[in-house]
Simulated scan of single mutants.
Amino acid sequence: MDKLVYTAMTGARHILDQQATTSNNLANATTTGFRAQLDAFRAVPVVSEGLPTRTFVVDSTVGSDFRSGPIETTGRALDVAVRGEGWLAVQSNDGSEAYTRNGSLKISENGLLQTSAGLTLQGENGPIAVPPNMNVAISADGTVSGIDTSQGQPGPANVLGRIKLVNPPTTGLLRGDDGLFRLESGQPAQADQNVRLADGCLEGSNVNPVDAMVNMIALARSFDTQMSLIKNAENNAAKATQILALN
């Protein structure tokens, strides 16, 4: 009974944690470039003076699903999607370099190329500044060009910079609380010339809403099962107490 209670109790607790993860994934089913979060659990024996017959469940690994999401055409010049593997490098709020797949870009009041969340996009030589009255175009290799329209007639195209595109191994990437990914080593990744962009497109979330809903239902049933096991253990203990009292 003791072993049953430990297993069911910790199992129910981490089912709730997994339910929260699934709910977060479902809430971001329409978030541009979102990567679904994955949970993995394992059983750990309870070390004590008694026999090692008790186990509990721990969340051993929190990972991410790095499969690409669907690419949708928007026709907007500042929308880009990473084709296949790769990331856009941005400067996070704490000043460190982080990586995202959200290619919905904008030009800030200071003329810096940023994501829709207000994070400054990293260029291979620093932030990319866009002068006023510029029509911006982004090529497949991340080169940002601008055409001056202040004279009434379009002028020649000027290269403003090149977006830093990286492709580090996914095994070394960690998701932060802000939803951005960083290298586990804390060091910035090297630019990868093989990463390509699709202009006028955005990559959607790789969360499948149907699968997420089915998973939530399955988790709810699993939680009910764990609660039933705890109740059965309580009933068994009560019956055992009655038998011992009769003896």
Rank of each mutant, 00 (worst) to 15 (best):
A237K: 08
S68V: 01
T55Y: 14
L183H: 05
T21R: 01
S116L: 13
G75I: 04
H14D: 10
M216D: 08
Q187E: 06
I107Q: 01
F181A: 04
G155Y: 11
P154Q: 09
D224Y: 05
D199E: 13
G146Y: 00
M134D: 03
P168R: 02
L88C: 01
I243A: 11
T7S: 13
K231E: 10
L219R: 10
Q242H: 09
D2W: 06
A77W: 07
V214C: 10
A12E: 08
Q114Y: 01
V90E: 02
Q193Y: 04
T225Q: 14
L105N: 07
N125F: 12
M1C: 11
D94V: 02
P127Q: 06
V5E: 05
G179E: 00
A220V: 07
G103L: 12
Q114R: 03
E234G: 10
S185N: 08
D211R: 13
D17M: 07
L244I: 13
N102F: 03
G50D: 10
N135G: 12
T120E: 14
D148F: 11
Q151Y: 05
D94T: 02
P52E: 01
A240H: 07
P132M: 00
I163C: 13
L174N: 14
Q122W: 03
L112S: 01
P209F: 14
N235A: 05
S139M: 10
V5K: 06
D59V: 06
A20W: 08
A212N: 11
E234H: 12
A43N: 12
S48Y: 07
A191R: 04
Q18Y: 11
G11A: 00
L219H: 04
Q226F: 00
Q18P: 05
V130M: 04
Q242V: 12
A98C: 09
T32K: 08
Q190R: 13
L119E: 05
E109S: 15
A20H: 10
V82C: 00
T170A: 10
V44I: 06
D2L: 14
G111E: 00
N135L: 13
L173N: 09
G172N: 15
R67Q: 15
T53D: 13
L78A: 06
A198Y: 02
R101Q: 10
A36D: 06
S116Y: 04
D199G: 14
M134P: 09
L173S: 01
S104L: 11
R83M: 08
S185D: 01
G126P: 11
N232S: 15
L113K: 03
R35T: 13
A245D: 04
L219T: 10
N194Y: 11
V80Q: 02
D39M: 11
E184P: 03
L229H: 04
T74D: 09
A8T: 00
N247M: 08
A27K: 10
I230Y: 00
F181I: 02
C201E: 09
T61Y: 15
T149C: 03
A8H: 12
N167C: 03
K106Y: 07
T55M: 10
S108E: 01
L119F: 15
V82R: 02
Q122N: 12
Q151D: 11
V90I: 00
A245M: 14
E49P: 03
A77S: 08
A89P: 03
N247Y: 08
